[in-house]
Design a protein around this nucleic acid. Sequence first.
RNA 1: UCCUCAAUAGCUCAGCUGGUUAGAGCGACUGACUGUUAAUCAGUAGGUCCCUGGUUCGAGCCCAGGUUGGGGAGCCA
Length: 511
Amino acid sequence: MSIEKFQYIRSLQAHEGQMVTIKGWVSNKRDSKGLVFLIMRDGSGFAQCVVDAAQVSEEIFERAKRLTMESSLSLQGTVVKDEKQIGGYEIRVTDLEIIQVAQEYPIAKKEHGVEFLVENRHLWLRSRKQWAMMRVRNRVIFAIHTFFQQNDFLQMDAPIFTGNACEGTSTLFETDFYGRPAYLSQSGQLYGEALAMAHGKIYTFGPTFRAEKSKTRRHLSEFWMIEPEMAFYDLDMNMDLIEAFLKYVVQDVTAHCKEELEILERNTAFLENAVALKFPRIHYDDAVAMIRGEKDVDGKNSIKLLEQDLADIKARIAEIEKEIADREAKISGGSLKQGEINFNRNKIDTLKNEVKELEEKANNIPQWLNSALNFEHGNDFGGSDETVLTRMFNCPVMVYNWPAAVKAFYMKRDPKDPRYVKGVDVLAPEGYGEIVGGAEREDNYELLLERINHEQLPVEAFDWYLDLRKYGTVPHAGFGLGLERMVMWISGGQHIREAIPFPRFYGRLEP
RNA sequence: UCCUCAAUAGCUCAGCUGGUUAGAGCGACUGACUGUUAAUCAGUAGGUCCCUGGUUCGAGCCCAGGUUGGGGAGCCA
């Protein structure tokens, strides 16, 4: 594009040795008598810009000195290669215009608490890790569209206002629709099925809403879901598609977001290995046996692994506590310089936080163990059961053929054993939980009607949906992917609220 | 809704067994320093100890109730 008369940090490489104009913000600053080091960010990346009193006029040097964190400016300078720098290049400044000297910026370089950061989400988004996370999200979205478009899927949108609860289970947000109650959609799937009967292969990509009072790092009240629906697909084809799709997205993101994943300190070797493996497909019955520890996988036992994890965490806590005590002894020893004392204090702060998190984990594991050991065949998996199961694998696992009682009415019965439905859940490794839920749909009018009645759902609300089984019904299948959970897994983040620009969850409506 | 942990300076935290005027680091501000990578060094300002009630000669600390937040369960992507 030739609209801009300035350059972006991302493209500095192409301008080595040349004069460039950069417009952006001060993300950090260090100065001494004759030098000011500005870490500039311009949205495309970060770069150190050096203002040398010997090289610029007194006025320009004074301007550089006046800059505060997050001040906005435009500067010119020469691009110089410097391996030590973030992007590999730095800028020797020759001219500098201040756009605004920012007021005291609330987000400091030091660690902050979660609540403070979420409260300042509109500013937090500027910091390096959040910047990287949003770029990963962007690439995930792009890869999803690319995959489906290249495979002849049409993107079609489902409505957000709905008159009925599609699954009737989860809690819905109620709104007023011209005097009638309407609900914010919790899935576009039923509409996706109608669209698949018109276009063959489609996918929806839109926001969904769940009024669950969940307070965990895996839940949001508003999140984005991708729901493909394919005519003439059965469960096996569905699973083939899910596997190919997930692998494509992961490979595309790891190939195109190297810098971002590095900033996020993501272990990409794990991801690359995960998508090189064939995703295990496990029958529900086998999964239950594995969770209970009755069935080993490659010599690994779920219960023993969990017990080992607990022991490891406890050992780690003891280790950290010893380090904290050592550092405290050093500080009170009195022979340290101020700088060393500060360094040790900061280190102790970080270590204490780590202990806090480990202790929370250690508190939860016994409950998880209990839940795994006493898991009853026929139940749905809880969050901890998923973790217990996926802990044994280094890639996503697919659990298929679920007990009909715990799954939605629209899932097709397995003709070989009608106690089960042809549904599949894909569980991400490393504790990220369920990222995909899918199924072959019930395509028989009578059986579907029977299920709707059995679940005591209002039949009249499903008239149009039942129509799909009257006018040329065909076998079909589809699935739903939670965008933020996918972003979380790929980026290795700790909390789903970091995977969406402005998270909405229980108790959080601003900013 | 349940279990569990927490709330002290703008931020992250310390504050011992209940005892006089509540501390540190970071950030901000002033100054020193030619290459820093969370720079360093000296100094200055900055407090409704979440709220209400109680116990006590005396409460940041103990008790009761509440509010807000973290983690988990349930539910789910």
